[in-house]
Amino acid sequence: MSTLKDVADRSGVTITTVSRMLNNRGYISAKTKKTIQQAMKELNYQPNEFARSLSKKNSTFIGLIVPSASNMFFSKIIDCTERHAQENGYKLLLCTSNHEEKKEIEYFNMLRANKVAGIILASHTGFLDAQIPDDAPVISFDHTVSAKIPTICSDNYQGGIIAAQYLIKRGCRKLAHISGSAKLNSFANLRYTGFKDVCEKEGIPHIVVDASEEQFISMKYEGTINSLLDNNPETDGIFASNDIIAAKVITACKKRNIRVPEQMKVIGYDDIDLCTLFTPSITTIHQPIEEICSQAVKNVILFCENKIVPTNITLPVTLIERESTK
């Protein structure tokens, strides 16, 4: 692999001159630039963009910390964030923590040490809350770090209301909610609050079962779902806190010869691609992931430009009707 020194030697200039040209510092004649560029091409030299970014006052890198890259929801978060970062002239540094405290803290400290433009925190464990200064360029997704750290989320409470109202409208009389993990300090827990408030107002019997953090990472919800169906055979409508759980519910129902949607109606949350790939297709609460990621990147840029960053942004959700409730 060619080095900066190799380029300098091939060009007949000093390493400092090559560095100045790469970082656009000081005057370099057009002839010298052309010579250096030709040498880089001949040597197939690729500048270390991360190192160059660190040498500048303003970094062109944004850090993203997620609990998982295999989970389809977070895969979409990663994809959308990378695209919006690239469109704005930034590159993404991805860190996956698997909900491990040590990894989250190490990743956060690494990103800070390398002076990234900002950090988008999509993990909800709370491990980093005490580590993050109030003036840090951090944007939190679906989780409150502190009163001064900006957050972005969908309207989780309204999503729960919409799901419960729709299941009742479709004739369900005994409802259940499967929570992603109530132990996590996440706005997503408001989905159950909205769901519960509607059920209590309408006098509809309901239960909630809570999945664990381990299930959130492994996506193995079968035990929780089977226990729910065994202990509550009269349940005829389930609101799952994410689409992966909803898909697992439908699979469990098929194995028990419970027909969806005739005997059991199922609603998910997020509206990931799985919803249209699954049979029956999954009715869900659409979370505006594209807008969330776009706004997160915009907020990082506002930080960099020393402009005011909105402290709390809540984006609306919508019901997407598909086969699992019709």
Score class of each variant (00 low, 15 high):
207 I>H: 10
137 P>S: 11
176 A>S: 09
259 R>S: 14
154 S>G: 13
26 G>A: 07
25 R>E: 13
32 T>D: 01
216 F>Q: 00
311 T>L: 14
47 P>I: 07
244 I>D: 07
100 E>P: 00
164 A>Q: 12
132 I>M: 12
101 E>C: 07
270 D>M: 00
160 G>K: 08
177 H>W: 05
74 F>V: 00
38 Q>K: 14
85 A>E: 11
166 Y>F: 15
175 L>R: 07
225 I>Q: 02
274 L>F: 03
267 I>E: 12
19 S>H: 04
119 I>E: 08
313 I>T: 15
72 M>K: 00
235 T>H: 06
200 E>C: 06
317 V>Y: 02
300 V>Q: 10
319 L>Q: 04
293 C>S: 14
178 I>H: 10
298 K>E: 14
291 E>T: 15
65 I>W: 00
192 Y>F: 15
90 Y>P: 07
265 K>S: 06
308 I>D: 13
67 P>C: 10
84 H>Q: 14
180 G>Q: 06
254 K>I: 03
65 I>A: 06
71 N>R: 02
71 N>P: 01
220 K>A: 07
96 T>E: 13
32 T>C: 04
73 F>L: 10
19 S>Y: 02
200 E>F: 03
201 K>F: 09
118 G>F: 05
101 E>K: 15
32 T>S: 09
253 C>I: 06
34 K>Q: 11
1 M>W: 03
170 R>I: 04
176 A>Q: 10
283 T>G: 07
237 G>W: 05
160 G>H: 14
35 T>E: 12
272 I>P: 09
274 L>Q: 06
221 Y>I: 12
142 D>P: 02
